[in-house]
Nucleic acid binder design. Structure first.
Lengths: 214, 214
DNA sequence: GACGCAATGTACCACTCGGTACATTTCTTC
DNA sequence: GAAGAAATGTACCGAGTGGTACATTGCGTC
């Protein structure tokens, strides 16, 4: 059981540090995470964090940037095909719900970053352009619905995005205090179908309210 | 400009520490807050934190408990009178929206506590009973709506509470990342009316969808 | 196969930070 | 007004923490 003398591989080392750091920061927040702790969870040493990233802060920035890029890529695969608009928004809401539940570490990073008032993300200009037109799919569905009269005409995509994101984010992010106070584990597998269809109902109910024939 | 030798007052000292600590923890989180920093913002010294509370952890617990009690008291004043059920839920949603916007420090404490997976709040058994039937008002309105056929019958109060809270919480808690990425300051006073009526529309649209005559 | 640099490891430092020992001062009580 | 307790202040400690100086080792290149 002797240590293999470990082949050198810059990319691998860097990537491993980034992965472990992502877990660690998502677990404990920025101040709560120890640089030594990150290092000890890798096969390399603390020295490498400074070699590759420069310091704790830059490491955290790298984590944040990569997390946002990753989530954006994952989101691009959410397609609603050519369902009719009403079923399209329902589907989109439900897919978003599943998406959030499958990326809880990312949700935690977002919550952490907001505790820091966005001080870090604000330095990542490159992310701005990323999310700018993340609303394309949503806009397409809404537009079709406006055209055929099946959806309200007075809501913009960002509003719908807020409503859906808020619901999904809350379920993941506030699970602990909420679960304690109301004794309902919002991530209980038995409740997922209920919660998933609920956000669908909410969005469809909202966007079709005041529409004739509904 | 000489210092008055400061009369001794246990209650006052304790209360001042608690207030300052609340601000500090809400600002910087648990790990991010320095005991020395809290002390320096008061007229007393760090020693008193240990005298009155025992340590940083117990101080944080006291902050958390008081914040939850305070918010609960404030919530008890949210009344919807005897509006008809549909307008009642709309009103309740809008009041909740304003309530969240007026208690951003509390929102931050909740977010922080969830970052810590509820490890602290879980030790505050007394809070459990507090929130248990915080759903009374909501339940009353829903019940009246079910009775007169103006609201859906298949949603329970906790679900409605989740939907409303999620929306309001998100607007406050994720303001920074969201504002950066989409260039919309969700707390911009000019947008408040829009966002307030939006949660009303969402909830009413949802709870009345499938109801005849709408 | 020697050279030179990129990559890695070790040992350590300076300082921060929660916490405490001990002295002191004010207030109450009789 | 003396005694005793409650309240407060000062000075300090030691473990933890981000960061670094310096040595070393593996790897491509000629």
């Amino acid at each position: 059981m002797t240590e293999t003398p470990r082949r050198r591989d810059a990319e691998r080392t860097r990537a491993e540090l980034l992965d472990v750091a992502t877990e660690a920061f998502a677990e404990s927040g920025y101040s709560g995470t120890r640089v030594d702790e990150i290092a000890s969870r890798t096969r390399t040493t603390k020295r490498m964090i400074y070699y590759y990233f420069g310091g704790k802060e830059q490491l955290y920035l790298a984590v944040l940037e990569k997390a946002y890029r990753g989530i954006r890529e994952a989101e691009e695969s959410l397609h609603v095909g050519d369902l009719d608009p009403v079923e399209g928004v329902r589907r989109l809401a439900e897919l978003t719900y599943d998406h959030h539940l499958n990326h809880t570490a990312f949700i935690r990073l977002v919550a952490i970053e907001n505790i820091h008032r966005g001080d870090f993300i604000r330095r990542l200009d490159s992310l701005r352009s990323l999310n700018r037109n993340a609303l394309g799919i949503l806009d397409g569905v809404l537009e079709r619905g406006r055209a055929d009269g099946s959806l309200r005409t007075d809501v913009d995509p960002l509003d719908v995005h807020i409503a859906i994101s808020a619901y999904c984010f809350f379920q993941v992010a506030n699970r602990h205090t909420f679960g304690f106070l109301f004794e309902r584990d919002m991530l209980d597998p038995d409740l997922r179908d209920h919660h998933r269809s609920m956000i669908g109902d909410i969005v469809v109910g909202w966007l079709t309210s005041g529409i004739a024939g509904r």
